[in-house]
């Protein structure tokens, strides 16, 4: 497949979520690699505002025509906001995984765990390993 888009300014998880860090608030979504493997996203079950989330635990769901996939929280914390526009336009996850296709903003309770996330170079290596 074509090489995935991996923006340098973001952090990444092994579950193929991306994270943008601004103070103690992170914006997250699924990566270009993830949206490509899932194919057409036709439904996103968004997390509720105020929901407590735990790093590595499923906290919402994206569905393609053929599959249902969990989305894992990249950090511990609480959901500040979910991207309501995905209810009408779930395809934005495919079209702009790092832009209009963002899924949630989470207020982190422990900034230390951000260090566990991969930077773009590490994630690219991780993807290369996944391919083999």
């Amino acid at each position: 497949m074509d090489e995935s888009n991996v923006p340098a300014e973001l952090k990444y998880t092994k579950g193929h979520e991306w994270v943008k860090i601004e103070g103690d608030v992170v914006t997250m979504g699924i990566t270009d690699f993830a949206q490509h493997s899932l194919t057409d996203i036709v439904f996103v079950e968004l997390p509720e505002k105020g929901k407590k989330v735990y790093a590595g635990k499923s906290f919402c769901v994206v569905e393609s025509v053929k599959s249902v996939s969990d989305v894992y929280a990249p950090v511990n914390g609480e959901v500040l906001e979910a991207n309501g526009s995905l209810e009408q336009s779930p395809e934005n996850v495919n079209k702009e995984p790092y832009g209009e296709g963002w899924i949630a903003k989470i207020k982190t309770s422990d900034s230390g765990e951000l260090e566990n996330l991969m930077d773009s170079e590490a994630y690219k290596k991780y993807l290369a390993e996944q391919e083999h």
């Binding site: 194919t39 057409d40 036709v42 393609s64 025509v65 053929k66």
Partner: peptide, 8 residues
């Protein structure tokens, strides 16, 4: 083959 380019 499950799809060639795009199911929809």
């Amino acid at each position: 083959p499950v799809y060639y380019s795009n199911l929809i």
